[in-house]
Write a protein that binds this DNA or RNA. Structure first.
Lengths: 249, 249
DNA sequence: ATTCATCATAATGTCTGACAATTGACTTTA
DNA sequence: TAAAGTCAATTGTCAGACATTATGATGAAT
């Protein structure tokens, strides 16, 4: 049982790697070279094989580029790191990175029953009790987004959210640590503002909004959060790296 | 110099792997288990390390889920494969899959000079000659999308496109095989239809459109295509799997 | 019979070391 | 000067081993 140094000791090497590598890549100017793999592996305290697994994912997201015989380079486009859609993060986290001063306004809780449509989408009985959390996100005191989260009551209760809720259900669930979250399936749409939402966001009815409709799944593949996010164009930049698909069946 | 069987022999192992693994994953029912890594590696003719690099990327895209001590499983959500944004494919390819009868209309070529803005975005001299390809995509004889591609003249010329162009610059470049394409950086926006585009799409000025602004890069990290895609909501469903980010600096 | 602890088994996670393939710079040579 | 050859550095791949974790089987205790 050599315990390996591993100062933290509570994370799997790969997870720690993912974070440290991301920070390192972000800290290196575009176009610059990363240390050679053997050096980098030593420096990060993992084997080259494990390092390469992580590198491959970052390469897949277009953050780095590797050339055999030459080296690994940080690719230009900074924005990929800034707001890539591959990683799910809260509006707050995202906004902080763009150095926006964000606040939450018009918070509202509603206890609703699933009903036909929601029961279909969320795969629960139509009589299921749900908690609906709605709020406006303000940046520099101007409304920029309207967020609605719908969760089963047994996953999150209103009383639990009363304190320590800063606007992001996602961040709250991550902090709480249970259930363990894995990923979200997000559908991207453009929509016109309905009267209710227009009023909340202080825009005109019919104005253009970017909308994410997301299903957040736990590690056990259970749906824990069904959410609608409406964004006023111009405040956020959402980007995604799409690899050219060789898959032509 | 054991030449390894490797029937094809012209691709790097990893690239071949990516395709074969994708097909294999797609062919396995959701929830089912993949063969164990050592077996799978043997079956695909690569080492376990190489296989794991590929697996890691598919895991990152939410297609598979691995559990230590148990195995690797194909994750449910069919939509991931159906119209996930991670893979770049042409509107035609996408439309075919949804079984839409698609056609191209109002094709138009323009020879333009880059100018200030385009020169910035595309990283070319302001005097560079560019080819602009615009067209409307019709589904069931109704306009559903308006596409504009802008390419350097030396990459694609009008005369070359005169024959065999079916509406997708991407598909054409893939078929031609040069330059080799790697990925695109796509920004997702919502916008109101400008008069010109509204006329093309037979909608009202100011109507809501989903818009992709994409930069397509070659394997040498050169920009080969700068494109704008406008979609009328309701005909396509764009989805993306976002993994919960552990990265909290 | 039921419950609990223990063990064996199998799978992924990680490590080590090596060799192959590619690139770029340097050296040598015509 | 220009071409060819050499060499070192770097990523790509491989093989084998051990570590860690989850599952089911086994047997003992209740």
């Amino acid at each position: 049982m050599v315990s390996k140094d591993s100062s933290k000791g509570f994370e799997q090497p790969y997870q720690r790697l993912q974070g440290e590598l991301a920070r390192m890549i972000a800290s290196i100017p575009a176009g610059e070279r990363l240390p050679a793999e053997p050096d980098l592996a030593r420096q990060l305290g993992v084997s080259r094989a494990t390092l390469r697994e992580a590198m491959r994912t970052f390469e897949g997201q277009g953050m780095i580029r590797r050339r055999q015989g030459v080296g690994t380079f940080v690719v230009g486009q900074g924005p990929v790191l800034q707001s890539g859609l591959e990683v799910l993060e809260s509006i707050e986290t995202l906004a902080k990175r763009i150095k926006l001063n964000v606040q939450m306004g018009a918070l509202r809780f509603d206890h609703i029953q699933a009903g036909e449509n929601l029961a279909m989408e969320m795969d629960v009985p139509p009589t299921a009790d749900l908690l609906q959390v709605s709020r406006v996100i303000l940046a520099e005191d101007r409304p920029v987004a309207y967020l609605v989260d719908i969760l089963p009551e047994n996953i999150l209760s209103e009383s639990e959210l009363q304190e320590g809720f800063t606007g992001s259900v996602l961040d709250y669930l991550i902090r709480r640590g249970s259930p363990k979250l894995s990923n979200s399936l997000t559908e991207i749409r453009a929509t016109a503002a309905k009267p209710e939402i227009a009023r909340m966001l202080q825009i005109q009815r019919g104005d253009v909004l970017l909308m994410f409709q997301a299903k957040l799944f736990s590690a056990e593949a259970r749906l824990v959060d069904f959410s609608f996010s409406y964004f006023i164009p111009g405040y956020f930049r959402f980007q995604v790296v799409r690899r050219v698909g060789d898959i032509h069946s």
